[in-house]
């Protein structure tokens, strides 16, 4: 026996592995995807990564019934009361590369291990189950949010929000201004700060309708949305936001044509001022052209200079968003 101990161990090892292969109902690990997917790329700012970035399924980590307090397991609250949470992982600011790595490993693996020890459903603890190779990657799913008329109506009617809750005076969606000018807030973070902070406050007050999970807002399949029956239906039953412009009224108000038609009398605003900043418009979008208070060519600027006072009621011009047929 002693003479053959190596071979015995080797055979044991083969049996062990084969047995485990047979017993183990393993599944080929597919990369996580979906609207709730977040790529944890915090190490990217330190240079090249050693392992594939973690594809983090946010939804799996949010136990909705626990409400807003659940966010604080992974996120820090912002310093001011009611100002929501920081979207980065907690305690991450200012850490070195190694410290960031250690933080994620200890928090993620620690939680997964604790859950397994407690006999509860848990997450992965093996390297490759989180760091899934990008060579078998599928395209990152889109996070586009279709804030259509029905959703708009829902916020205005059901949630009784003023236009100014989300829009600035130019009509654009409010942008969060960075405290540090060298680190501008991305549109994504800005929108999240605006929406999720509000939803968090609503949820904290006991109301349950405002979604906090990713797919609560990012649920529409983006590519096929325009052809989807649901979307068409929602667009039919909700409407609002249009401006019914009474040209005759403006003519009779003793305004020269070239105040508005400053290029040529026959050229309408939207020929140059498109939704994007076209070269003909001098970089001024239609929205900006209509809402710039400092310009008398714009609706708001003209209304204010004509003595209408500061215009802050959007529905003076825009149709309110309502649910129901036109």
């Amino acid at each position: 026996m002693r003479k053959r101990v190596e071979a015995t161990f080797a055979i044991l090892l083969i049996l062990l592995c084969v047995g485990m292969r047979l017993a183990y109902t393993g599944n080929e690990k597919l990369p996580e995807r979906g609207e709730d997917l977040i790529i944890l790329d915090a190490l990217d700012s330190f240079g090249e990564r050693e392992r594939p970035a973690v594809r983090f399924p946010h939804e799996k980590h949010v136990a909705d019934e626990q409400g807003a307090s659940n966010c604080l397991v992974c996120h820090e609250p912002r310093s001011e009361e009611g100002s929501g949470i920081k979207f980065a992982f907690k305690n991450r600011d200012g850490l070195s590369r190694e410290a960031v790595k250690d933080l994620y490993h200890s928090e993620c693996l620690g939680c997964h291990a604790d859950l397994e020890a407690a006999g509860q459903p848990s997450g992965p603890q093996i390297c490759s189950e989180c760091h899934v190779n990008s060579s078998v990657d599928s395209p990152r799913s889109s996070h586009t949010l279709h804030f259509d008329a029905s959703l708009h109506a829902l916020h205005e009617d059901a949630a009784s929000l003023d236009c100014q809750a989300c829009h600035d005076s130019s009509g654009a969606v409010q942008r969060v201004v960075a405290q540090d000018a060298s680190h501008p807030v991305s549109p994504k973070n800005s929108s999240h700060a605006l929406c999720i902070t509000c939803h968090l406050n609503v949820r904290t007050s006991g109301e349950t309708s405002a979604p906090l999970d990713c797919t609560g807002c990012h649920a529409n399949p983006p590519a096929s949305a325009s052809s989807s029956e649901d979307t068409l239906l929602s667009e039919n039953v909700a409407h609002g936001g249009e401006v019914t412009f009474d040209h005759d009224l403006h003519e009779s108000a003793d305004i020269a044509c070239d105040v508005c038609h400053h290029k040529e009398p026959e050229t309408s605003c939207s020929e140059c001022h498109t939704d994007g900043a076209s070269p003909e418009s001098g970089g001024i979008t239609l929205q900006v052209a209509m809402h710039t208070r400092s310009s008398e060519r714009s609706c708001l600027g003209c209304h204010e200079s004509m003595g209408a006072g500061v215009v802050d009621d959007c529905t003076g011009c825009h149709e309110p968003f309502t649910v129901g047929h036109k």
Binding site: C17, Y24, E28, K29, C127, S128, V132, V136
Partner: peptide
Amino acid sequence: AYHQVGDSTYWTLA
């Protein structure tokens, strides 16, 4: 396991 050839969970446990 490192190169994630096949079922990497199995390879890691092995």
